[in-house]
Structures are given as C-alpha cells and as structure tokens.
C-alpha cells in the first residue's frame, strides 16, 4: 500500500511536468460526460419522467456510475493501458522485480486528468442529492459510499480481464469497451428500464446493478424488504474482482510459458 502511494506521487510529478496539456485535458474531461448529461436532461425535459423515475433520481444514478468510472480510469489505468506495456516489453521489467505483478501494473499508470470527469460527476451528485427528498441516516450514507467504491472495483476487474487477454492477443480488445464504456452508458440509467436479458446480465454476471440500481432503491426509500440486504449489495463488486484477479494470475503464468 505504501508502495502504491509512492507510485502515485512519482506519476503525479511526471504529469505535472506538462502543465498546459495537463490542465487542458482535465478541463476537456470535464466536458465529455457533460454532453451526455445534457442529453439526459433534455430527454427528461421533453418526456417528463422515465418509467416512474424522476430526473433527479436518474441524475443520482448517473453520478454514481460516472464517479466510479472516473476513479477507476484514474487509478486502474495501468490495466486499461496494459497492451502498451506488453508491446513495449515493459512487462518483462516488472517480472524481474520482487513484487506482485498486479500491484506493479496498477502503479505503472495513473491518469490524473480524469479529475475533470470526477469533478463533473461530483457536481451532478451534489445537485441531485440536494434536490432529492432523501431521509438521510448513517446506513444510507454508507451505502452510497460503498456503491461508488465497489463500482470502482467492478470497472477495475473488467480492465484486468481485458488486460489478461493481451497475453494471448493484442487484437480485438475493443470488445472490452462493451463492458466498460457500454456498462457505464447502460448503468447511467436505472437498470429496470432495460429488457430482461440486459438486466440479468448486468446484475449476475457483471454486477453493475448491485452497485448502482439495487442499493439505490434503498437509499431512495423505494426498497421493500430488509435494508441490510440492499446495503450489502455493493459487496458483489468484491466478489467480482476476485475471479478477475485469478484469471490475471493465469494470464501471467501463460505469458511466462510462451513469452510474447
């Protein structure tokens, strides 16, 4: 963990070396999800509501998933950009160091410019929370924090899975976008508006629904049943990450038996 922060600080220093481009990118990152959010706003303006969801509720859904996405793009960037590390041969270097490969890959890249996106999502979050009549208490606040944290784990797990694919092929990794970008696009609206197969897939296979839609029902006071069940939902993110890590280790073993 200490080492992870050392990695953080050295990469932060590096990125600040290019100050102008750093700020420009941060600024630009602020605007990318902005147009998507504007689209959402305009749709609600025209149609009023979405299957019983109000605009601010949907905005909260949007904010949670975008927060998780931008945090994972910032901190798990190393896995996202892993094909570059393989192509440059940098992965061999990691293998001759006495630390776990997953930690070193995580530490190989951070994208601090994603703070722009993070800021935008945070503003949406605050705005939505201010407008929603939520009956706040400690369990609800904890649930909300857990949702974001475990969302990060899911995205990280997906990055890890597709980084693992790099050990076999450098092509076709675009398919990962379905689960990261696609998952994000999908999960920014409440999950119950989709067809059954989408809902099932994104609840039981890649559990975006568990870190976003389901616990949110509880936060918004729409849930029936025991709150503990809903509060524990986000932990599905942890359950998702573990097999991803195992697959990663298999990938590393494969790499070491075949080379690149």
């Amino acid at each position: 963990m200490v080492l992870y922060f050392k990695y953080l600080s050295i990469l932060f220093k590096s990125q600040l070396q290019y100050r102008a481009s750093f700020w420009l990118l941060t600024f630009g990152q602020f605007f990318i999800p902005f147009s998507v959010f504007a689209g959402m706003y305009l749709m609600f303006e025209r149609f009023g509501e979405l299957r019983g969801w109000t605009f601010y509720e949907a905005a909260l859904v949007f904010a949670v998933i975008h927060l998780a996405f931008s945090l994972s793009e910032c901190f798990a960037r190393g896995f996202d950009m892993f094909s570059g590390l393989i192509a440059s041969g940098g992965f061999d270097r990691l293998l001759v160091r006495p630390r776990s490969t997953a930690l070193q890959v995580l530490g190989s890249q951070f994208e601090f410019t994603r703070f722009g996106r993070l800021l935008q999502s945070a503003i949406v979050l605050v705005w939505a929370l201010a407008k929603l009549p939520i009956d706040w208490n400690a369990p609800r606040a904890v649930t909300l924090a857990l949702m974001v944290a475990c969302g990060v784990l899911i995205f990280t797990g997906i990055y890890m899975l597709f980084a693992t694919l790099c050990f076999w092929t450098v092509q076709g990794l675009e398919i990962g976008n379905i689960f990261t970008d696609g998952g994000r696009e999908m999960a920014q609206y409440p999950l119950d508006i989709y067809k059954k197969w989408v809902t099932v897939f994104f609840t039981f296979v890649i559990p975006f629904g568990c870190v976003n839609y389901l616990p949110l029902l509880y936060v918004l006071g729409r849930a029936h049943g025991h709150p503990a069940g809903y509060m524990a939902m986000p932990l599905a993110g942890v359950l998702f990450l573990l097999p991803c890590l195992a697959v990663w280790l298999i990938g590393v073993r494969h790499y070491r038996s075949t080379g690149s």
């Binding site: 050295i10 220093k13 590096s14 041969g89 001759v96």
Partner: peptide
C-alpha cells in the same frame, strides 16, 4: 539479480533520476 535491458528504460521518464531510485528502493524493500 539485477537486469539491464539496453534498449528499454526502467527509469521514469519525466522525473529526476533520484526519484526513480527512491521508488526502486521501496519496490525492492
């Protein structure tokens, strides 16, 4: 063991050398 790949760098490109060394110190404990 120590390994030097002549064609690839293990130093962090944009920061002073000593920072890379300090990170290596933590990596190798």
């Amino acid at each position: 063991i120590g390994v030097v790949f002549g064609q690839r760098s293990q130093l962090w490109w944009d920061v002073p050398v000593i920072d890379s060394f300090q990170l290596l110190k933590d990596i190798y404990r």
